[in-house]
Computed example of a mutant assay.
Amino acid sequence: MGRVEGKVAFITGAARGQGRSHAVRLAEEGADIIAVDICTDFETIGYPMATPEDLAETARLVEKHDRRIVTIQADVRDAAQMKAAVETGITELGRLDIVVAQAGIAGMKGEPRWQSFTDVINTNLVGTINAISAALPHLKEGASIIATGSTAALMDTSKVDEPGKDPGGVGYVYSKRALTEYVHNLALHIAPEGIRANVIHPTNCNTPMLQSEPMYRSFRPDLEHPTRADAEPVFGVQQAMRIPFIEPLDISNMVLFLASDEARYVTGTQQRVDGGGYLKWYGVHF
């Protein structure tokens, strides 16, 4: 019997990258999936978003494990769309037990600068709140909410960022920090109902977000058009362990743990899957 057998998971940003990995890993362990993704590019973001074909591929991979999946193109920035997506999924699959608020964008070097800041906040922070808020009325005792933060959320950006230089990048850090505080407080207030909420903080993760020209420029500002080969050696500076990045599956395994009954008393935590990035940069502040 799988570790989440018979449960239903609502996952945003599910068309590729971490979101797809989470959907497949939970399906491997017995969950049915409500998979949501916008599948539309942002004018302010310098790398392409997932496509409808990517979302269909997620469905194919889930179905390989003989699990059911409902795929929905929807925008996490729109609370009504999230409510409709949850209700559609529950109508098809009958229940809701797990929420994985994964959808997010990185606005590094985004233009126009301040619009990229707004798009990042609305997606990463407001989108997380919308997804969780849409799911909450349907959750019962034993349910698990998991949001994706970032090791960047733990940074003191005042020491590393030139004010006003890259609002999209700062928006990414702020949004992840703010959603972390939101989930922390939410966990306290839903605990009496037996519902848990936790945040996972990945370091660099090998997804299209990391492997993109804007991110390469962030890591190699000394080069006008850096490539993956230029940036990858610098990726490793983020972690104490000798790795350039982690894989989506490394995060999915933590998602699975937090979604399972093995973590039935784990709530309000900040789970770092970061190769020691926090240890390297942020000292002994637990």
Results as ranks from 00 to 15, higher is better:
Gly94Met: 10
Tyr174Lys: 03
Gln239Asp: 07
Val99Ile: 10
Asp250Asn: 14
Asp274Arg: 01
Asp37Thr: 13
Pro214Lys: 10
Ser144Ile: 03
Arg3Thr: 04
His285Trp: 11
Thr269Ser: 13
Leu136Pro: 04
Ser212Met: 05
Leu61Ile: 04
Phe245Ser: 08
Arg228Leu: 10
Gly171Ala: 02
Glu247Val: 05
Arg228Lys: 11
Ile38Val: 13
Ala240Gln: 12
Val126Asn: 06
Gly17Gln: 09
Ala134Trp: 01
Ala263His: 05
Phe235Tyr: 13
Phe257His: 08
Asp261Ile: 06
Arg177Trp: 03
Ala27Ser: 09
Lys83Glu: 14
Ile69Thr: 01
Leu279Asn: 09
Ile98Thr: 05
Arg272Gly: 05
Glu193Asp: 15
Ala79Pro: 06
Ala152Gln: 03
Tyr182Lys: 08
His189Cys: 06
Asp222Lys: 12
Arg177Lys: 10
Val99Leu: 08
Pro221Thr: 12
Leu258Glu: 03
Tyr174Thr: 09
Met155Glu: 06
Ala143Val: 07
Gly142Trp: 06
Ala263Cys: 06
Gly13Met: 04
Ala31Ser: 14
Ile11Leu: 10
Ser133Asn: 15
Thr128Leu: 06
Leu249Lys: 12
Leu258His: 02
Arg67Asn: 06
Ser116Gly: 10
Glu213Phe: 13
Val126Trp: 03
Glu87Trp: 09
Glu63Tyr: 06
Ala231Ser: 06
Val120Arg: 00
Leu179Thr: 03
Glu181Tyr: 12
Gly89Tyr: 04
